[in-house]
Design a protein around this nucleic acid. Structure first.
Lengths: 347, 347
DNA sequence: TGCAGTTGATTAAACGATTAAGCGCAGCAC
DNA sequence: GTGCTGCGCTTAATCGTTTAATCAACTGCA
């Protein structure tokens, strides 16, 4: 009934070579005292038998599963591919597997997902919360990737600095009136980004912030934002707090016959998959997910290796903010001095 | 040194109640013969102690890890969130965890990723290949989600039928000349979709297919597709084989001053996150990922439960094609009878 | 030669669960 | 009263690995 593991195990190697299991284990792990000749013999034999150690046996003995959990509470988060990829890469470089637990947006579902991970015996986990959910002491080390202003945050992109990059870029192009577009008013990430933009404005520039979440909830995701009207009011730059909103803005403006970047500029955040593909391609700010993932995972791994007692703690890292990188593409250009008389023959 | 698992184990419950470990195990799993009274007593006591069974112990004994692998070889696939979510949901409903293994696009990296999963002892895995990679016999059951025309496919959306839906929709709107836009010529999925569209054309309609992969490789992802010229040639509908290309087409057309849907129609595939958000919102075809995931996972689980010998097989499911659903939004409209004289004042 | 110290291996005890087999006891039939 | 059956529980083996403890043999040194 019970399915046998296919490959050879330590004891098969041991009997086949006429030595004890412990010796084989020591030879392969390089820990105990085994003669060099025997180590060599055992290693080659193990290799030609195609031996792979049983994670189950090892996990049982050591109390470590070699698996990290990844919790993404945000429904179908478009950043997911990048995050998952980066985390998986960093984890597997550190010898860990990654168990995902997507909790469809709900907060209780999130804690359930975390519990599932704990029950599966993960050694630690990476959580990317949407709101500042208190990930209080799951019974394993936890790394939080959100934003530096979130209490308990382990590491994150420097969203504030990213905002400043955008502001500086727009200032350099001569824009005076900037409309910031966000869709989640309670998101620490978006607030940091918006704050960074405002902090980066030069004297003589002003900004206004448009939170579209209520509009989206009432009228649906594809609602009109009324950006043409805003352009008529004198806004020449639309700085979205995410590429999704940037796309929303860009297409709405185009549909209204307003040319980007000739008439107005549009910028985003995150450098999502479509950013280089749309016309005009999107000027945005990229987070260095690989570095963030590496920092998070290594902080986690350090903690796991150091603490014998498997306590639940929020781990900390030396570098808390990873700089974001401005990607200048086509959607941002020199401020049009007379935005109202939008010429349709541009470009 | 070895970190102790925090919670109680079977033997702690057993000694605490003065019974044997086996009895506790039987009581909790409901397998052996235990009196109802004792079962009750053990269950409540286990509950109040907060007992969670050790996956490691169980895995070692039963040879089953209770974990499925998910392999997504496609770099940063924008479908990833949906797939991962659906698979994770289906798997966790079936009592399984999901271990991800993203192999950054490379084929050798893909087999490495598969090996990593096998070494971690997954009981089975779901593979979504980009090209028809032969997933020949990893040493565990494998479910392939690609397209019905792929040999060895387990279950997939009925891309062909999805294509017919698009064709029928465009035919109903009076379109005669359809430009199909794809970016991967070797993709079974895209070929099926294109085939479905062509098969669904009414008499008097014609189609042409534009593969943009070479253009993308040479000129970058955001290259000009020259769609305005195509519109001038008389094409009134642009049927992209993925929402990403649809977005590419939509924004390029808008930028050129061609109005969608007044002048031409644009349709996509997959109903990705931005489809409802862009202006005009995108008419597309949605795959029922939840159903697909459920079928794949349950086929996998059936296979796992039935085969004792852990052999590596491509599992099959009863339902191989899951119908796609046409989502009509704003980007498709009645065919403009005189596309050449595109009036700029539309809308 | 005798003794301490090192080397290279073995022995055995875990880790936590599952499960086949066994055992005492009651009830029942002959 | 004996034999049989079924119930309720225990005993014990097992999965594969790690690792502390042990031990034999050999070395160097007095």
């Amino acid at each position: 009934m019970a399915s046998q593991r296919p490959g050879p195990n330590l004891s098969r190697i041991a009997t086949s070579l006429g030595v004890s299991v412990a010796t084989v284990s020591n030879a392969l792990s390089g820990k105990g005292r085994v003669s060099d000749a025997l180590i060599e013999r055992i290693r080659t034999h193990a290799a030609e038998l195609g031996y792979v150690p049983s994670q189950a046996g090892r996990a049982l003995r050591t109390g470590r599963s070699g698996v990290l959990g990844l919790v993404l509470p945000d429904i179908a988060n478009p950043l997911f591919p990048k995050i998952a990829q980066a985390i998986e890469y960093a984890a597997s470089a550190a010898g860990y597997g990654v168990l995902i637990a997507d909790s469809r947006g709900d907060i209780t579902a999130q804690t359930e997902a975390i519990n599932r991970l704990v029950e599966r015996g993960v050694d630690g986990m990476v959580v990317v919360p949407r709101r500042a959910t208190r990930i209080s002491a799951a019974s394993c080390p936890v790394a939080v990737i959100d934003t530096a202003s979130t209490p308990g945050n382990t590491v994150a992109a420097d969203h504030w600095q990213g905002g400043r990059e955008i502001a500086a870029h727009l200032a350099g192009l001569g824009h005076k009136q900037i409309l910031i577009i966000g869709n989640n008013h309670e998101s620490n990430v978006q607030n940091d980004r918006a704050g960074g933009i405002r902090a980066g404005l030069q004297p003589g520039m002003r900004s206004e912030t448009l939170w579209i979440e209520r509009l989206e909830n009432e009228t649906g995701a594809g609602c009109r934002l009324g950006l043409a009207e805003k352009a008529r009011q004198g806004f020449t730059a639309f700085a979205a707090l995410s590429d999704l909103q940037a796309l929303h803005a860009l297409t709405e403006l185009q549909q209204e016959g307003i040319s980007v970047p000739a008439d107005v500029s549009v910028t985003g955040f995150d450098d999502l998959i479509w950013s280089p593909v749309v016309t005009p391609s999107l000027t945005t700010v990229r987070m260095d997910m690989d570095t963030i993932a590496e920092i998070a995972v290594s902080a986690l791994v350090d903690r796991i290796n150091e603490s014998g007692t498997r306590e639940g703690v929020l781990v900390t890292a030396e570098t808390e903010r990873v700089p974001m990188q401005l990607i200048i593409r086509q959607s941002s250009g020199l401020a049009n001095p007379a935005p109202k008389t939008s010429e349709m023959e541009n470009l």
